[in-house]
């Protein structure tokens, strides 16, 4: 489907969702979101414009590994919004039978989404003061949502499952083997799974003058360990040049934990948090191996997909740092 055909299909879908509108302008593909396409557009409503984001899977939904369908993602966003948390409002969802294919449209949250700006732009200095606390609190609040009220979510990932995923890939890595072994030898006691965003990092946060304005990209929402999202947020690759600020490059781990504890009323379990960090890091090593396979099998022969495979050593180094108790930024 070329952009002209996309515009036609979109016009039909928007006419249903916004019967009063006068069409749309500014359709543009956004950079980022490698698994599925994300587009930005403005619906014309009287004298005003309603900024929207469109998520779609133009080649069908076949090759996303472990992610929700677009309809599932939209349903999770609606449930989180109903719980009073900052997420965009969803306007419509379409399926395989629609000319648009599997897709959904939601409001475009006003604010800054660029992770580098969130970590470093001086304009956001005030917003950053409260941001890590807010992000920690939202991570805890989403865990109060009843899993039974959500579409079926992927399960808690186990070390056994990680071994299986790793063994399905064609690459071998002594560093990943070491990480898997550590995970098995150091497993924390089982805990009831809760709703996890699954990709809770600076990149999927929208920040306004007052701090956190929205959490986006719920494709990887799943039922997991309560500390998974905090662990992901603190991973070295997602600090955007401010390695010294452990929480997403914008705040400290202490601020993040304080926000989380302000909701749960309990301190964060450091050993469980560390285990979650190692697990995420091993998982991302295996993720880069999966990306290589998607590239080689021809599902997505784009150069940017292929180059993700070349990032394995980055994550291997982060894994070695974790196993040796080193924080590359010093650990604030």
């Amino acid at each position: 489907m070329d952009q002209g055909e996309l515009e036609g299909a979109l016009r039909t879908a928007l006419a249903e969702a916004f019967p009063e509108s006068d069409g749309f302008v500014g359709l543009e593909r956004l950079v980022g979101g490698a698994s599925k396409e994300t587009w930005s557009l403005d619906v014309l409503e009287g004298d005003g414009r309603r900024p929207l984001v469109l998520r779609r899977a133009p080649q069908g939904e076949g090759f996303t590994i472990g992610g929700l369908s677009l309809a599932g993602e939209a349903a999770v966003i609606e449930a989180v919004g109903a719980a009073g948390l900052p997420v965009p409002r969803v306007h419509f969802t379409t399926g395989e039978d629609s000319p648009l294919g599997p897709a959904f449209a939601m409001d475009r949250v006003t604010g800054v989404g660029d992770p580098v700006a969130i970590a470093r732009d001086s304009v956001l200095a005030t917003a950053r003061q409260e941001l890590a606390f807010q992000v920690g609190a939202v991570a805890a609040q989403m865990q109060a949502i009843d899993l039974a009220s959500l579409p079926e979510l992927a399960e808690h990932i186990t070390v056994e499952r990680l071994y299986e995923l790793y063994d399905e890939r064609s690459q071998q890595s002594p560093v990943v083997e070491l990480g898997l072994r550590w995970l098995g030898d150091n497993a924390p006691p089982p805990i009831a799974p809760v709703l996890c965003h699954g990709d809770y990092r600076n990149s999927n946060l929208i920040v306004g003058a007052e701090g956190l304005a929205g959490v986006i990209d719920w494709e990887f929402a799943h039922a997991g360990d309560p500390l998974e999202d905090l662990a992901l947020l603190c991973m070295a690759p997602w600090r955007f040049g401010r390695l010294d600020r452990t929480a997403g490059g914008f705040g400290t781990k202490a601020e993040l934990f304080a926000g989380y504890s302000s909701v749960t009323g309990e301190p964060v379990d450091g050993a469980r948090f560390h285990h979650c960090q190692v697990l995420h890091t091993v998982r991302w090593c295996i993720g880069t191996m999966s990306e290589l396979r998607v590239y080689r099998d021809g599902d997505d022969p784009s150069l940017e997909r292929g180059l993700v495979g070349r990032r394995l050593a980055e994550t291997e180094l982060d894994l070695l740092d974790l196993l040796e108790g080193i924080d590359p930024g010093g650990g604030a």
């Binding site: 070295a236 600090r239 394995l312 050593a313 291997e316």
Partner: peptide, 15 residues
């Protein structure tokens, strides 16, 4: 791993 990063990703902050 460090030697591989010198090829694949020499600007990676952790490196």
């Amino acid at each position: 791993t460090m030697a591989r990063l010198a090829i694949d990703s020499p600007k990676y902050p952790s490196y």
